[in-house]
């Protein structure tokens, strides 16, 4: 950890963090504003939903829309959120290490008494800070919209809404963790991006296919995305603690490996 480097890296990346955070917050806010419309016509919506095949609904997290948590999970956390945060995690993980090695700027950062471990620990912290910021903004967007802009008496359980964000944060801490690990392994930014992006896409696809095709739902045991089920968090159906511990551990282990590997490897600077 180096404070001056952290400050400078945060300044460089803040625009990107705020961009993702704002996009995510605005989406949640708009969806929250739409919730009362749906709430009033819930019966009709439920009838319409019954027309869709069940696996598809499961894959999209659309099983039920009766509470705010379920609604927002279906409308955002089950799909767009995963895509947006997936892109964010892979992109920033690659930018924070592999890009600096590929372009040679790492030579400057490693020209002083500051060690490799300190530089990478700082970069990991920058990534986590960005992820926290995005989730805070998203949570705030939903909370403020529901509290002050929408006139609904019940149905909004903020505990669940918080957990949806919290476990989501841990999911992308894990995704970012293995992306940082890949980022620390490669000399070429594009190769690192292709591999980290490819793996993330594969994990996401495995979760989707496992939900759609019940015969092969075992495939979901091999992807971290299956540990994040916002719709079921909203229904209090899942063991949040267990998923949190597993996702958090993946992230921590990946970060520790990132530090160890980067310390040992030859750098083409």
């Amino acid at each position: 950890m180096n404070m001056s480097f952290y400050t400078q890296m945060m300044r460089i990346n803040l625009k990107m963090f705020l961009g993702f955070g704002l996009g995510s917050a605005i989406y949640v806010t708009l969806m929250t504003l739409m919730f009362p419309l749906l709430n009033d016509n819930m019966e009709e919506f439920d009838k319409m939903i019954e027309l869709f095949p069940e696996p598809l609904l499961r894959a999209l997290g659309l099983e039920s829309l009766s509470s705010y948590g379920q609604f927002i999970s279906a409308e955002y956390y089950g799909l767009f959120y995963l895509i947006i945060l997936g892109i964010f995690s892979v992109m920033s993980a690659i930018q924070l290490i592999a890009r600096l090695v590929d372009r040679g700027s790492m030579a400057y950062l490693l020209s002083t008494r500051v060690s490799r471990t300190q530089i990478i620990a700082t970069q990991i912290l920058v990534f986590v800070s960005g992820l926290v910021l995005i989730h805070l903004m998203t949570f705030a967007g939903g909370y403020i919209a529901a509290e002050f802009l929408v006139d609904i008496e019940s149905n909004i359980a903020f505990d669940q809404f918080f957990y949806i964000n919290f476990v989501g944060f841990l999911l992308f801490f894990a995704v970012g963790g293995y992306s940082l690990l890949i980022s620390a392994l490669f000399n070429d930014e594009r190769n690192a991006f292709a591999l980290a992006g490819g793996i993330t896409f594969l994990f996401y696809g495995m979760d989707m296919i496992g939900k759609l095709v019940t015969d092969i739902d075992w495939i979901r045991n091999f992807t971290p995305f299956s540990l994040y089920e916002p719709g079921r968090i909203a229904n209090d159906e899942v063991d949040i603690l267990m998923s949190s511990i597993i996702l958090g551990s993946i992230g921590v282990i990946a970060c520790v490996l990132t530090l160890l590997i980067f310390k040992k490897r030859n750098l083409p600077l």
């Binding site: 180096n2 404070m3 001056s4 480097f5 400050t7 400078q8 300044r11 460089i12 625009k15 600096l100 372009r103 040679g104 700027s105 030579a107 400057y108 950062l109 020209s111 002083t112 008494r113 500051v114 600077l269």
Partner: peptide, 24 residues
């Protein structure tokens, strides 16, 4: 370094401040 590659999006001042921080 032989090939100068700075970080994106910094002014000369910001870069020198950061380096001073790293150099202590």
């Amino acid at each position: 370094p032989g090939e100068i590659a700075f970080l994106d999006g910094m002014t000369g001042h910001q870069f020198l401040n950061m380096m001073a921080g790293l150099q202590g």
